[in-house]
Write a protein that binds this DNA or RNA. Structure first.
Lengths: 244, 244
DNA sequence: TTTACTTATTATCGTAATGTATATATGTCA
DNA sequence: TGACATATATACATTACGATAATAAGTAAA
């Protein structure tokens, strides 16, 4: 890590910051990106919403801390979880120095709804991205009642999550983390359109996804439609990643 | 950030980890990616090489800490500096819990050589990437004398830096951070080939780069060649990013 | 002065990827 | 049985890209 001077390792030589993890629990609700928040009832920012988070234990990995918060605060046993960025502004928490490692958790629609139902403290807000492509910038976080101002720098964290997601969506497999195990091509396209904020060309999207080799047809079809049902696909990582 | 319970903010309620920054000082030397290292002379890992790093001050931003390490340990006033990832394995330092925020610093060939000359503690090692594309995995770090085993988990950090760099190279402007202010298209292609570990098609590369709109011809030409000199270009971010 | 040589730069062509429009298939429901 | 809505497949235009060849512009040697 760092210095060679023994002084640097004297536990009392430096004041140490606290380290926390904060989770962006992201899903698609009604065709729009949405995030799960907790309402704060103690200062600072009492009454405001915040991302679920918690301190990192002294004997706990960052990933383990994120998984624990996912379990304890959202009641979710497993989800796609990836480290996003570490926020270290000095006064991001007015009380004390807290460095926060932000994580992105992706939930499919059922998991999102289940968390919302099972955990009384959680509430859902819609994310609207006002910038095109991967420009970056602030996003609007709102419920049907209106805009939701977030505590701390959590709005920046959500904005960064959207930027990262847009960047990774079409070269990685993160899109599938937002879908149930079996899904139609239309559902997959809906997820991409919701994240990217654009409408995509259907045949071209279909071709690209099928050519990628990540989709396995199940032979089953969706039900409950009053029109021709679509084929259900399953995500499977190809064994040979890169044919060279 | 985190909990709503006031207990969470009692400074003595939790044992706090130390937080450090570690820098991957990366440049291209002789057509190969290279990294600047410091030799440790105290345990643990005495005699091994490590990334330059330092603890984050209680009143210091993460970015500021990275810039300070860049200045104090590498003698570099300014460079492209971006946060890479935060490493939080519990026993990554055998003495105490240290969470490290890794930064990637990109140096052009002159800055790399100057740092190596001016700071006696620094040494340069070549990075060899054995995996194709963005597969990921370990990299080989070596000097002409042989492989250089790194202290702590620093080899993982360097490997991640290469993975990140490969991913960002051709859709972002990071490649220009590895070049002097004025450069030829051949130099730009050399940088891309060194990072990606492949040989690229020259006319196609030229077309793509020019069409991107990031290159401004200076009208000047390189000197010192015994053949036709190439035009010198300058990087300039276009004012209109995305023609919609 | 001319020619050889080396690389820069431009042009040409074929192929693959993608956008767009249209046609056909398949289910429900009146 | 036919209207309807969407899935799926096909055809064609446009664009991006790889490969190769042709031309340009310097130095150095004959």
């Amino acid at each position: 890590m760092t210095d060679d001077e023994a002084l640097d390792y004297d536990p009392n030589a430096y004041q140490r910051p606290s380290v926390a993890v904060d989770l962006v629990l992201l899903g698609i609700r009604g065709g729009e990106p949405a995030v799960l928040l907790v309402k704060r009832d103690a200062p600072p920012f009492a009454g405001r919403c915040a991302l679920p988070g918690g301190f990192v234990g002294i004997d706990e990995t960052l990933d383990a801390a994120a998984a624990r918060v996912l379990r304890d605060k959202a009641g979710i046993a497993t989800a796609h979880l990836e480290q996003l960025y570490t926020f270290g502004a000095v006064a991001r928490d007015p009380r004390m120095r807290i460095i926060s490692v932000a994580y992105l958790a992706l939930l499919d629609e059922a998991a999102f709804a289940a968390a919302l139902d099972d955990m009384p403290g959680l509430l859902a807000a819609t994310i609207t991205v006002p910038w095109p492509g991967e420009t970056g910038g602030a996003v609007r976080i709102a419920t049907p009642k209106g805009a939701v101002p977030l505590a701390f720098d959590h709005a920046d964290i959500v904005a960064l999550a959207m930027l990262r997601l847009r960047g990774k969506l079409d070269y990685s497999d993160v899109g599938f983390a937002l879908l149930p195990e079996r899904f139609t091509l239309r559902q997959l396209q809906d997820v991409h359109e919701a994240i990217l904020g654009v409408t995509l060309n259907k045949p071209a999207f279909r071709r690209r996804m099928l050519d990628r080799g990540w989709l396995a047809a199940t032979g089953e079809r969706e039900g409950g439609t009053s029109f021709r049902p679509a084929e259900l696909y399953r995500f499977h990582r190809p064994l040979i990643n890169r044919p060279m």
